[in-house]
């Protein structure tokens, strides 16, 4: 039983990163209709940006986070310029191919710049105020601060995102676009700006996830492949474009994987999500929580 709780906690930690990556992916799809196969690379770049900021530039934690967000913003703007703006008059397959090409290019750029060897961020928690004072033992569950930080940051970021979407003009514009792009445009929503904001948000969420995870797991050039697949799994399970669905599905996938690896086999951990997703696509293409829509 004690071990079970520990596995659940580990699952929540992993699941939280899936949520961060998947929410951005689902936003970009829901608002702009772009299926971004390069989303895992946003995570990878966030991880490397964190490592560079802290170990190379020797920045303290908060400026390091700012650095990661800055890099993510640049990546987001560039990705929008490549994957969204020129693709409006192209068919859907072209945008799939284009983002896939971008993913391959980014992975190999990382391979050239950072090298193939996996790297990890050595975060000295004891020097960080607030974080160092957090407890690490919760009854039978042990969570070091680096891990504990991940679900906390996820909850915070998702809460901020929710408030922005709900109560700001930009948020209303984003939601209007998701509902009906043409009508939103007619009502004066500036589509270009919304598109850029959406990509920056997606890149920032995934980049933050990458930075947080880089103190727990290794970062390497193709780490984004698996993360992107997990995020797609989550997005499909949650229903394409559904943010709340992605949050629930992300935690579910993290916990399922953690339990699979503990009780069945470690090798099955990654396979279980894909089997899930293929089944869901075949039998409930609208996702676990979506409603079936059929149109004349």
């Amino acid at each position: 039983m004690d071990l079970f709780l520990q596995y659940m906690a580990n699952g929540v930690v992993i699941g939280s990163t899936y949520v961060l990556v998947a929410v951005g992916l689902t936003l970009i799809f829901g608002i702009l209709g772009v299926v971004n196969f390069a989303h895992g690379e946003f995570y990878m770049i966030g991880g490397y940006a964190g490592i560079v900021a802290i170990t190379v530039l020797k920045l303290p934690v908060l400026p390091a986070i700012a650095f990661v967000l800055l890099v993510a913003a640049v990546v987001g703007i560039a990705a929008e310029a490549i994957l969204h703006k020129p693709m409006k008059n192209h068919d859907a397959t072209s945008s799939i191919i284009s983002s896939f090409g971008l993913a391959v290019a980014l992975q190999n750029a990382a391979l050239v710049v950072m090298g193939p060897q996996p790297q990890r961020l050595n975060l000295d928690v004891s020097k960080i105020p607030v974080l160092s004072s957090l407890p690490t033992d919760f009854g039978p569950v042990f969570l070091p601060q680096q891990r504990l930080l991940i679900p906390i940051a996820t909850v915070l970021l998702i809460a901020i995102l929710y408030v922005v979407l709900r109560y700001t003009w930009t948020g209303r514009g984003l939601r209007a676009m998701a509902q009906h792009a043409t009508v939103a445009r007619l009502c004066g929503v500036r589509v270009e700006r919304v598109a850029i904001v959406t990509f920056i948000t997606g890149a920032a969420l995934a980049g933050t996830a990458g930075m947080l995870m880089s103190s727990v797991f290794f970062v390497y050039p193709i780490v984004g492949n698996m993360i992107a697949l997990k995020a797609f799994t989550v997005v499909i399970l949650g229903g394409m474009g559904n943010v709340a669905g992605a949050a629930v599905a992300g935690l579910l996938l993290g916990i399922t994987e953690s339990l699979t690896s503990a009780y069945i086999s470690n090798a099955m951990r990654d396979v279980v999500g894909f089997v899930f997703v293929i089944l869901v696509l075949l039998f409930r293409p609208q996702g676990l929580f979506g409603k079936a829509v059929e149109r004349s």
Binding site: V35, F100, L229, F232, T233, I236, V277, L282, P285
Partner: peptide
């Protein structure tokens, strides 16, 4: 090919990536 009977575009692309990974 069986998923391709029901899925189009990006959904099919995701399934083929999942298959490749498996």
């Amino acid at each position: 090919g069986i998923p391709a009977l029901r899925l189009k575009g990006h959904f099919l692309a995701i399934v083929t990536i999942a298959f490749q990974t498996i």
